[in-house]
Amino acid sequence: MDWFEKLGFEDNPFSSDAKANHTALVKMDPMIEEIIYRISSGSMLFIESGEGTGKTTLLMIAAKKFGGSRNVVYLDCDILDKKLNITHVLQDKYGMMGRILNKKPKDMIVLMDNVTELSKLNTERLKYYFDQGYIKSIVFTGTSYRSAKFSESLRDRIGNRVIKGPKINSDDAVEIIRKRIGDSELFNDKLISKIFKMSGSSVKLLLENCEKVSRSAAKKNRKRVQLADFKVLMSDKNDMV
């Protein structure tokens, strides 16, 4: 029996799988609207938001909205090796023959997650494909637009289209967790706030830490998290030191 089953959940309520839980987004609606608009009006934009605040989730929503005709490309630049070749990515739409014929698509939407740098070659390609209309819109995400290694000409195209993510405060943190666990007695709001603070205001860490303390409670066959369970987090911190 899994820990979450013991606590009365069917699944891990603190999963941070971006694909699974976009319904649990908090304070993202205006941002989603903005991104959808920017994509459909054809632009390059950068979503700047801290780790674990739902950038990937936003991209997933965008992908869903515009997907369907194999027109959307999602690239997680974090896990890609340096060999990324935008040309090939775009041509994949047409399979092998497309590559041989050097066929290029039209009006693609490219979502580039966690971009910290772009090789010169890929920058040139992106610029060119964007300018020529092969790519309709490009959405970059990252934790900092300033420190992203983008060329000046790319920045010129992004212009003021930098969308900053929401600042999650402890109220939102409570809302995020409540959306996931409902009225469960697992935590009270105060505990959630506390965990949030201990997580350095990162939603990603908040979820991870909630899972840890819940596991600890489940281990001890309790249905409520107690301060005693916070030891797990402390020992974690010590490990890191």
Partner: peptide, 21 residues
């Protein structure tokens, strides 16, 4: 605010937080 639009402001605002914290 060059990014314009009234709505996006919302995700920057944090009025609720103040009350609690």
């Amino acid at each position: 605010k060059p990014e314009a639009k009234v709505e996006p402001k919302k995700f920057i605002e944090e009025p609720k937080a103040k009350k609690v914290e």
